[in-house]
């Protein structure tokens, strides 16, 4: 626990150096939150359609997805990409500890530390907003939701490591890193809450690993899932986490082997 706190403190101090960028990011997320919430209010004015969220839940979902915007795996570890290009990767491969765990640790910090400023800021503001724009959390589900959010972060870091592994295949790796995150974040509910999509589509998407990063915790936190549904979603998150970790490890190892054979 103490190690964790020390780590968090260092990360927070680092983030404070990018204060201006963090504030600009938060302002952007706030503005987009308002726009999305306004659009959903307008859609709901004509009835809930096929959505399985109430309007208040949809609005709350918007705020949470904006606050966790930087948790999404927007790319692999960029410095590794740079190392692959200029050959410094050889040093990275020579380090004793397992490449995958090392990268996974760094991916986790990359995905969580930006939230130290953004998430609390957005939560506080959106909790204080007037009526139809206010964030409303399902208090009894908070513990489960928080746990599920943690699983989401672990999943997102696993995807980040997987993306980093694809950098071993330079051009195609960069292609994957540029395009996959945008599609993935859509499938995760970052652009439109999955609960607002047509029923058949939404049910299919909730089985995928992308939903395990974002939609699962958000659905629980806004109170759109009962205990049973929440536990089911979390079980799926754990399953996907195991699968993504295994896949990531396989990709990183295959890449490293390819790299060694070619002599860097």
């Amino acid at each position: 626990m103490r190690a964790f706190l020390a780590l968090a403190r260092t990360a927070l101090r680092q983030q404070m150096q990018y204060r201006a960028a963090a504030l600009a990011g938060a302002a952007t997320q706030l503005a987009f939150g308002f726009l999305y919430a306004s659009v959903y209010q307008a859609f709901y004015a004509g009835g809930a359609g096929e959505a399985d969220l109430t309007l208040a839940q949809a609005v709350s979902y918007v705020w949470l997805s904006q606050g966790t915007y930087r948790m999404m795996p927007w790319s692999g570890l960029r410095d590794i990409d740079a190392m692959m290009r200029d050959g410094r990767i050889a040093f990275e491969l020579a380090r004793p500890r397992a490449l995958f765990s090392m990268w996974y640790g760094r991916a986790l910090s990359l995905r969580t530390s930006p939230l130290l400023i953004n998430l609390p800021l957005l939560l506080v503001i959106s909790l204080l907003l007037p009526g139809d724009f206010r964030l409303r959390l399902a208090l009894p589900m908070l513990p489960l939701g928080a746990l599920s959010l943690l699983l989401g972060m672990l999943n997102s870091a696993a995807v980040t490591t997987l993306l980093t592994g694809t950098y071993f295949w330079t051009i195609s790796g960069q292609g994957i890193n540029r395009i996959a995150p945008m599609i993935g974040s859509f499938l995760a509910g970052n652009i439109i809450p999955l609960g607002l999509l047509p029923a058949a589509l939404r049910q299919a998407l909730r089985l995928l690993p992308f939903a395990a990063m974002l939609d699962a915790p958000l659905r629980i936190l806004v109170g759109a899932a009962d205990i049973r549904a929440a536990l089911q979603a979390m079980a799926l998150q754990i399953l996907w986490l195991a699968a993504l970790l295994a896949l990531g490890r396989a990709v990183v190892q295959a890449g490293a082997r390819k790299c060694m054979v070619q002599g860097g």
Binding site: V39, F43, Y44, G46, G47, A48, G49, E50, A51, I192, L196, L197, P198, L201
Partner: peptide
């Protein structure tokens, strides 16, 4: 997708 869900 939103139009598919909500119609209009």
């Amino acid at each position: 997708a939103l139009f598919a869900s909500f119609g209009a």
